[in-house]
Design a protein around this nucleic acid. Structure first.
Length: 649
RNA sequence: GCUUAUGUGGCGCAGGAGGUAGCGCACAUCCUUGGUAAGGAUGAGGUCACGAGUUCAAAUCUCGUCAUAAGCUCCA
């Protein structure tokens, strides 16, 4: 007797082994129709898997995440089969599922372009229509290798060679096509109802830039056509919020061919927002006991040799002067602020009474990124960081770290971003290339254990990123996704274990002994440009009042009321509100439309009625909102309150 | 840096089988002084990213450079 325990706890008994598909049928015909695969004892398996022993069984459908992944993975195999049929000489790499679809990396002998996607889709449709059975089979390692050699699949061969020696190698066969694959798959190719190939890009084999670049075809698949269409529309919709598009449309920033990549120009509106942001951050830091510094944008190479940047980060720096020429003084634009603030700390002997010492600086940095890496305001060659370093005694580390986390959370909340971020504990990778990290496993372990303790104590919900640390220490990175779903670091808090020693930073402790301090390297809102990008996307350009470059625009109904409009403007400006008057000789409907498109929070309409009664007609940028007539004092009080309390709607 | 695309007046786009460019918005002037998402007329503005090559002739073809987008690698 075989006992099968279902997800709801019910038990089924069978005298003989049955396939998962059969068991599903016995449970219900309806379930059998929607079954995609199953979990047996928690392990994902094909429907054809034979159940011969007692187990727990959960039938997976397309409503489950795993089911959808299986469905998409099968689509990736159909893509591979189609490509092999059209270009028999191409070699297959890997074809996994990703968050919103799948991709397949393929080495084409003759490169293909986006124009070929339609052709491939047609071939895929034929394969789907043929409804080939998808059969799993396994081979011993040796035979698996022979099979892949026979097919000439050298990438698959490499994958097999990296599998543990003992494992049986599994393959899937559909029609005349065989692919190395762990599985799981649909029972036949006909199960795919809606898919689309999205793009062709390059991707290095095994993610290593020293390897050959293969062609990556991205695609997605859904249970129903309507879902596919809805997904594609949602992607298009998201692109409308793209900061790189609306940031330019709204006159926040621009770029210029003659100025260069990664060097945006902030126009008056963008510059205003950046100023509001940095004033807020600097004021808040001052309130929390930070001391502002202002340090040079460049330094002699000597400084970077002490900090280790010369050894670990030279490719990322803009070096000024020729090292080969003895008469040149070799300088570099700074990629980080740390060594400068450390130098300030070192000016004068420090006592334990000086600690914790919290330095902050609105710091402009320069990093020579590779040309393809720049992206809108998110990846730049020059950017300004809300940077800072806390020099603390060992026993102060935890409290100060917690203080930094508190500041960061407060700042995120004020900008309305607190629900959009994820925390990542970024560790070093002991197996990384020699020069990526300072090699001192013991210190790394100590620092990482300390940080882990602090994070757990603060009850921060984090993921771990191995190989994501800075060259000098582990980090708590605060991650955020942009409109394309790509994740970037917004804020970083690091425990720096090496640079203090390199710079011989010490303080005299209570016992009169020279001691190395701990250093927390942190930013409070990250780099302003990147944060601005994320804010543009979050609010689709309709910033909260306190961040809006123009908070209200006064719209006179006609020229006759311009004097009153200007009176209102003066009154509001005097109290620190950022207001403009639309003086143009246009109809009121036209001016409203323009203000609406500029996403100005408030429109104050003034005409005969208002001028006589010393009021304004208030319209908000939200659609369908009734206008409200308010006295000048009322509207000023309302806007000031909204501004001062940094209210986010 | 690599892969695939793109680069036409301030912006968004047409066109371009090689024979010296169009539209909409914006801008200027005039008419209209109009009450909650585009009133009308007239006009100015570009040698089609830049450089080289092919050609009688290039914005249109070729190559290179620069820039932009998505992805890879890298990273705040």
């Amino acid at each position: 007797m075989i006992e099968v325990t279902l997800k709801d706890g019910a038990k089924k008994y069978f005298e003989h082994p049955h396939t998962v598909a059969d068991i599903a049928k016995r449970i219900s015909e309806g379930l059998a129709r929607v079954a995609v695969c199953a979990k047996v004892n928690g392990q994902l398996v094909d429907l054809s898997t034979v159940i011969a022993r007692d187990c727990t069984l959960e039938i997976i459908t397309l409503k489950d995440r795993e089911g959808l992944d299986v469905y998409r993975h099968t689509t990736a195999h159909i893509l591979a089969q189609a490509v092999k049929q059209i270009w028999p000489t191409c070699k297959l790499g890997i074809g996994p599922t990703i968050e919103n679809g799948f991709y397949y990396d393929i080495d084409f002998t003759t490169p293909i372009t986006q124009d070929n996607l339609a052709q491939i889709e047609e071939e895929m449709k034929k394969i789907i229509k043929s409804n080939f059975a998808i059969e799993r089979f396994t081979l011993p390692r040796k035979e698996a290798i022979q099979l892949m050699q026979r097919y000439g699949e050298n990438y698959k061969l490499e994958l097999i060679q990296n599998l543990p020696i003992a494992t049986e190698i599994s393959f899937y066969k559909q029609g005349g096509f065989v692919d190395l694959c762990r599985g799981v798959h649909l029972p036949s190719t006909g199960g795919i109802k809606a898919f689309k190939l999205l793009s062709v890009t390059g991707a290095y084999w095994r993610g290593n830039e020293n390897n050959k670049m293969l062609t990556r075809i991205y695609g997605t698949a859904f249970e129903k056509k309507e879902e596919l269409i809805a997904y594609l529309e949602a992607v298009e919709e998201a692109k409308k919020r793209d900061h790189n598009k609306i940031g330019r449309e709204l006159g926040i920033f621009m770029t210029d061919n003659n100025i260069g990549q990664g060097l945006p120009l902030f126009m008056p509106k963008g510059a205003k927002i950046l100023q509001i942001m940095s004033r807020f951050v600097e004021d808040e830091e001052e309130r929390r006991g930070y001391k502002l510094t202002k340090t040079p944008y460049m330094a002699k190479s000597d400084l970077y040799k002490i900090s280790g940047h010369w050894q670990h980060y030279k490719d990322g720096m803009f070096v000024v002067g020729d090292e080969e020429n003895e008469r040149d003084e070799v300088m570099a634009l700074r990629p980080m602020t740390c060594p400068f603030q450390y130098t300030i700390f070192n000016n004068g002997l420090k006592s334990y009474r000086d600690l914790p010492l919290r330095y902050n600086e609105t710091s402009t940095l320069f990093r020579n990124e590779n040309s393809g890496e720049m992206h809108g305001l998110i990846r730049l060659r020059q950017f300004t960081l809300s940077d800072g370093h806390l020099v603390v005694a060992p026993e102060q580390l935890e409290e100060e770290f917690a203080g930094v986390v508190d500041l960061v959370c407060y700042v995120l909340k004020t900008f309305g971003l607190e629900d959009d971020v994820k925390y990542r504990f970024s560790k070093w990778d002991p197996n990384a290339k020699n020069d990526k990290y300072i090699h001192d496993p013991e210190t790394w372990n100590v620092a990482e254990r300390t940080m882990e303790k602090i994070l757990n104590h603060l009850k921060i919900d984090y993921t771990v990123g191995v190989g994501e640390a800075a060259f000098y220490g582990p980090k708590l990175d605060i991650q955020i996704k942009n409109v394309h779903g790509k994740e970037d670091t917004l804020i970083t808090i690091q425990v720096d274990m090496f640079l203090a020693k390199n710079f011989d930073m010490t303080y005299i402790n209570e016992q009169g002994v020279k001691t190395y301090p701990y250093i927390i390297h942190r930013s409070s809102i990250g780099c302003y440009e990147r944060t601005l990008a994320l804010l543009i996307e979050k609010y689709a350009g309709a910033f909260p009042l306190w961040l809006s470059p123009t908070q209200a625009i006064i719209l006179p109904v006609s020229d006759k009321f311009l004097p009153y409009a200007q009176k209102v403007e003066r009154a509001m400006r005097l109290l620190g509100l950022r207001v403009e008057v639309d003086k143009r000789n246009e109809k009121i409907g036209y001016k409203i439309r323009e203000a609406q498109l500029e996403k100005i929070p408030y429109m104050l309409i003034v005409g005969e009625k208002e001028a006589e009664s010393n009021t304004v007609s208030v319209r908000t940028r939200g659609q369908g909102v009734e206008n409200e007539s308010m006295s000048l004092e009322q509207v000023i009080a309302k806007l000031r309150r909204e501004n001062d309390e940094k209210i986010i709607f």
